[in-house]
Amino acid sequence: MEAFGSVGVTAQVLFQGDAAVVTVLRVAAGGEIGRHPAPVDQLLVVTRGRGAVRAGDGDWQSVRAGQAVVWRSGEEHTTRADEDIEAVVVEVAASRSAHG
Score class of each variant (00 low, 15 high):
residue 38 A to W: 09
residue 39 P to V: 06
residue 39 P to M: 09
residue 40 V to S: 09
residue 41 D to A: 04
residue 41 D to W: 00
residue 41 D to R: 02
residue 42 Q to F: 08
residue 42 Q to D: 04
residue 43 L to S: 10
residue 43 L to M: 08
residue 43 L to Y: 07
residue 43 L to K: 01
residue 44 L to I: 07
residue 45 V to S: 14
residue 45 V to T: 15
residue 46 V to F: 00
residue 46 V to Q: 00
residue 47 T to K: 10
residue 47 T to F: 07
residue 48 R to P: 03
residue 48 R to F: 03
residue 50 R to H: 00
residue 50 R to V: 02
residue 51 G to M: 00
residue 51 G to R: 01
residue 51 G to S: 06
residue 52 A to M: 03
residue 53 V to Y: 12
residue 53 V to M: 06
residue 54 R to P: 06
residue 54 R to W: 01
residue 55 A to F: 04
residue 55 A to L: 09
residue 56 G to V: 07
residue 56 G to N: 00
residue 56 G to F: 01
residue 58 G to H: 11
residue 58 G to E: 05
residue 58 G to Q: 13
residue 59 D to I: 02
residue 60 W to M: 09
residue 60 W to T: 13
residue 61 Q to C: 12
residue 62 S to R: 11
residue 62 S to I: 11
residue 62 S to H: 00
residue 63 V to R: 05
residue 63 V to W: 04
residue 63 V to N: 09
residue 64 R to K: 08
residue 64 R to G: 15
residue 64 R to E: 14
residue 65 A to M: 13
residue 66 G to I: 08
residue 66 G to C: 07
residue 66 G to S: 13
residue 67 Q to T: 05
residue 68 A to P: 04
residue 68 A to H: 12
residue 69 V to S: 10
residue 69 V to K: 02
residue 70 V to H: 13
residue 71 W to Y: 11
residue 71 W to R: 01
residue 71 W to P: 01
residue 71 W to Q: 05
residue 74 G to P: 06
residue 74 G to N: 08
residue 74 G to K: 03
residue 74 G to F: 01
residue 74 G to V: 03
residue 75 E to T: 04
residue 76 E to H: 00
residue 76 E to Y: 02
residue 76 E to A: 09
residue 76 E to F: 07
residue 77 H to N: 01
residue 79 T to S: 15
residue 79 T to I: 09
residue 80 R to T: 08
residue 80 R to S: 02
residue 81 A to P: 04
residue 81 A to H: 04
residue 81 A to Y: 11
residue 81 A to R: 04
residue 82 D to Y: 06
residue 82 D to I: 06
residue 83 E to L: 11
residue 83 E to Y: 10
residue 85 I to E: 10
residue 85 I to A: 12
residue 87 A to G: 05
residue 88 V to T: 04
residue 88 V to P: 06
residue 90 V to N: 10
residue 90 V to K: 10
residue 91 E to C: 10
residue 92 V to T: 15
residue 92 V to W: 00
residue 93 A to E: 15
residue 93 A to F: 10
residue 93 A to K: 15
residue 94 A to H: 13
residue 94 A to R: 12
residue 96 R to F: 11
residue 96 R to A: 14
residue 96 R to G: 15
residue 96 R to I: 12
residue 96 R to P: 06
residue 97 S to H: 13
residue 97 S to D: 15
residue 97 S to P: 01
residue 98 A to L: 12
residue 98 A to E: 09
residue 99 H to L: 15
residue 100 G to K: 10
